[in-house]
């Protein structure tokens, strides 16, 4: 397993070099990918041309939620997003080619078709993060600083685990790629807003069922010193690394089960 990062790197370097073989095309794709994602935040800006607070969050605080959510999804999409094409690869037979190589199929599926242009989203989110931090008056402590940095990593891990869970389901239902979008891209659309505006049931669901609230919402509440909903302790954001670890374990089990199923049914 210690070799896995090296093997992954080996594969993605090939794809990065493939993309850079056409530099003009790459730049164009990167710019347009950044623009596509920017429209999300422009919507928030337009909303704030009419209002001054959204669900108790100011524009700067909303920007912080947006930036953390979008960075996490963007990084997860960059690193593991290719895995959502597993159904298509099973259909074309490309998946079998992974299984004859001495590298775990998971790494190959995640690295194959690695699209550097997906950096567009984290780049755009990073810009919004700078905007947010300049606008919000945060009472910085070491713990809050660490929480913000850690949440970017754990959020990425949680989204990556969701990508893998969605891909694993394609071993059962080959055409279900769009289904996973509802928790990944849908999750990003959800977590860019203060979750309480969606009602208590949704907050419960994204805390205890699909733990999207740990991607950025609880960590950001902690950083901003805002109370947590549902009577949960304000430090609940600190649990996000634990949640990320559980999600990794679950998604790894699901992937293994999916792969086992594929190898014993051949379809």
């Amino acid at each position: 397993m210690i070799r896995a990062p090296a093997q992954y790197w080996l594969l993605i370097v090939m794809w990065i070099r493939s993309v850079l073989a056409y530099p003009a095309s790459f730049v164009l794709m990167l710019v347009s990918s950044t623009l596509v994602n920017l429209t999300d935040f422009v919507a928030v800006l337009i909303m704030f041309s009419h209002i001054t607070a959204f669900g108790g969050f100011s524009l700067g605080e909303m920007a912080l939620l947006y930036a953390t959510s979008s960075t996490a999804l963007g990084m997860a999409d960059l690193l593991t997003g290719s895995i959502e094409r597993v159904g298509e690869r099973i259909r074309t037979g490309a998946f079998d080619a992974y299984l004859i190589r001495p590298v775990p199929a998971f790494l190959q599926a995640a690295a194959d078709g690695f699209a550097l242009r997906r950096l567009g989203r984290p780049l755009q989110a990073g810009t919004v993060l700078v905007f947010a931090l300049s606008k919000v008056d945060i009472d910085w402590t070491v713990a809050r600083g660490i929480m913000l940095a850690v949440s970017l990593v754990t959020g990425t891990v949680i989204f990556a685990a969701l990508f893998v869970l969605g891909a694993s389901f394609q071993f059962v239902a080959i055409d279900s790629a769009e289904l996973a979008n509802s928790v990944t891209y849908g999750g990003q659309a959800l977590t860019q807003f203060p979750l309480t505006v969606f009602g208590k049931e949704i907050v419960r669901a994204v805390t205890f069922v699909v733990p999207l609230a740990f991607v950025n919402y609880y960590p950001v509440l902690y950083v901003l010193g805002k109370p947590a909903p549902l009577g949960l302790p304000s430090w609940i954001g600190l649990l996000s690394p634990l949640v990320a670890a559980v999600m990794v374990a679950l998604s790894s089990l699901a992937w293994r089960a999916g792969l086992r199923r594929y190898r014993s049914t051949g379809s």
């Binding site: 239902a173 055409d175 279900s176 769009e178 979008n181 509802s182 928790v183 849908g186």
Partner: peptide, 18 residues
């Protein structure tokens, strides 16, 4: 594309609620 249609409707609904 039946399954694609069903999962598409599901995704649309999730985004609808959000």
């Amino acid at each position: 594309y039946r399954i694609a249609t069903v999962s598409g409707i599901f995704t649309n609904s999730v985004f609808g609620f959000i």
